[in-house]
Design a protein around this nucleic acid. Sequence first.
DNA 1: GCCCGAATTGAACAGTGTTCGGCCAGCTAA
DNA 2: TTAGCTGGCCGAACACTGTTCAATTCGGGC
Lengths: 233, 233
Amino acid sequence: MGIKERQGRDRETVRRAILDAARDLFVSEGYGNVSIRKVAERIEYSPAALYSYFPSKDDIFFALASEGFDLLGASPAGPGTLDDQSTPLKRLRRTVWRLYEFSVEHPEYFSLMFLDRSVPRISRADECFPSARRLKLEIEARIRACVDAGDLPPSTRTPVTFRLLTVGLLGMAAMRLSHRVPAGEHPDALARDILDVTIAGLQTGIPLRSNAVGCPLEEPGDARASSMSSLSS
Amino acid sequence: MGIKERQGRDRETVRRAILDAARDLFVSEGYGNVSIRKVAERIEYSPAALYSYFPSKDDIFFALASEGFDLLGASPAGPGTLDDQSTPLKRLRRTVWRLYEFSVEHPEYFSLMFLDRSVPRISRADECFPSARRLKLEIEARIRACVDAGDLPPSTRTPVTFRLLTVGLLGMAAMRLSHRVPAGEHPDALARDILDVTIAGLQTGIPLRSNAVGCPLEEPGDARASSMSSLSS
DNA sequence: GCCCGAATTGAACAGTGTTCGGCCAGCTAA
DNA sequence: TTAGCTGGCCGAACACTGTTCAATTCGGGC
């Protein structure tokens, strides 16, 4: 049984070697250009050997995405955790901003975790990955702290606010990662602005449609409108 | 020479057939699952034949992206062009909203135009595609109209505002297209909310960092901060 | 009828993810 | 010590992918 443990340890070592090699290649060559054969060559195994450690290529990158969430969760909270002597709003802001920082520092991880379409199983990431769940809960707690401190209006609904705070940064990150940022624009400054503007907008306390209980896919009234009518109010 | 014209017309016909087949397959099967062989089979040509019409697979999808921008530019302005009896703000809003509508109605086109990483040449789309340029100019004109009407503060800088208005919707579309919308969330409602909140935030007239003339990549002060310091103010 | 040139193709190259039969080292039981 | 088993590993193959190129077909002009 001690032997079994050693075998297990060996297997774990090889598994790690596969993931490390895949991550390195992934970061330097980009998702689509990493093949099983390249990973195998780097760890000096045959391509077929990898399939006794991972059922498919997707599972390798699925495991890497999981690591990505761990990394994001463990990433430093900034230059000297400024959780002290700071307003709840600044703390919320800092935590959300980490998301964008992460997209710059680990673009390939970020793409895998939030954007890539070829690994479709990641829907509901906060259910699959404990770290993702923890991060979301942390942000939501900070949102509530802002509400308690009066930095956000009492009508604030936490899950909606979470989405609104993050989706703009996600869009900016998507622009960066897909090389769609026109020359002359500064994505980092724009990302900060979108965060600023979103917070300012939330503070105005305007009513949000997502707060409705039912699914507000279709606006009531104006029944002759196109299938995706909108904002007729 | 009349013959040459007919030959040219034939070539154009085949070219269109290729694009139509590629578009259909692309919409129904998704980008990555469309191969040159499938397109060729559908138009009953050999795979090699396509290469006398397009230098590479990328160019086929590049042409499709161009069509996508045309389509977006020509898409109806909504239920009965409500350019009449409406405020400049509502008109601006309607025009920007078209972007999200488009991402729902033509997800594959949208992905190609704004998200896909495998066709990297699309940077600066508004320079490559006339329709994209026209659309951006239209939105920017509406932004200026809002400023003139007092719906947006005088400090508004048009290009930055354009980006801020669109990047949130882009993020929401990216979530939808990458199947990252958790169950229970309503992307359409959230998209409307992010647009609402962004407009409300812009109306507060808070100062924007992107308005600085230089490239504000690094914040002045706090030199010991990490390579991507931020929001220490 | 012949010929030319453009259009089209079949076959191939190099690459991909994945599967499967067999090989061989190392442990176990006799 | 030896036989057998078992688990990890690999070579080869399958069915794909984008792309190239020599060879062939074919429509129109002379």
